[in-house]
């Protein structure tokens, strides 16, 4: 009863100490400001590495014992984009040659615009309009492969990866 009267008494003012709270808040603020590191927005691309059984189904051939387990990533794609690079000191890791391998042969396309044009013109004639394979030199830089992936995704292909011709991977 006496306590209640004490709280209600207008003569008694509560003085909440704001300063320590403000100090503490500033400390926290500086901490988070120092560690503030806005990163670029990340996205993703699904990579098409089907199970051996799925690949076999598309190929309409019975799965063999060897491709049940340790098969290299491969796709039953009609088109294979072949990317070459030079290691001449100045052009290390960038694309020096692009060609498209199909049933009709190997067609050089020059650059990414040429590749886009080729895909637009030839997509309707393909049996497998969904999948495409990229086969690049092992020294080609990843950003260059991503540029080609962008072109393929834009034309509606799912991307798979072929073994670099200059790389031997133990089975």
């Amino acid at each position: 009863m006496s306590k209640k009267r004490k709280f209600d008494d207008p003569d008694i003012a509560f003085n909440l100490p704001i300063t320590p709270m403000l100090d503490f808040t500033f400390q926290l603020l500086f901490f988070f400001m120092i560690y503030y590191n806005p990163s670029a927005l990340e996205g993703q691309i699904e990579m098409n590495l089907p199970a051996p059984s799925e690949t076999a189904k598309k190929d309409s051939s019975p799965p063999s014992a060897s491709n049940q387990n340790d098969e290299m990533p491969s796709l039953p794609a009609d088109l294979t984009i072949v990317l070459r690079t030079q290691n001449d000191g100045s052009n290390n890791g960038i694309i020096s040659h692009i060609s498209v391998k199909s049933r009709s042969g190997d067609t050089p396309v020059g650059n990414l615009d040429g590749l886009r044009q080729y895909l637009i013109e030839n997509k309707t004639t393909l049996d497998n309009k969904d999948d495409i394979k990229i086969e690049a030199d092992s020294k080609l830089k990843w950003f260059a492969v991503v540029q080609v992936m962008d072109v393929c995704k834009k034309e509606g292909f799912k991307i798979g990866f072929g073994q670099p011709p200059d790389l031997t991977v133990a089975p």
């Binding site: 590495l49 340790d70 670099p164 200059d166």
Partner: peptide
């Protein structure tokens, strides 16, 4: 961005050999 395609292919191959399916 500056990694070699060969290394990335090796990583994918190793994962697939261990029966990882989703990438």
């Amino acid at each position: 961005a500056g990694a070699d395609y060969g290394s990335i292919f090796q990583v994918l191959t190793l994962c697939k050999k261990q029966h990882f399916r989703y990438f």
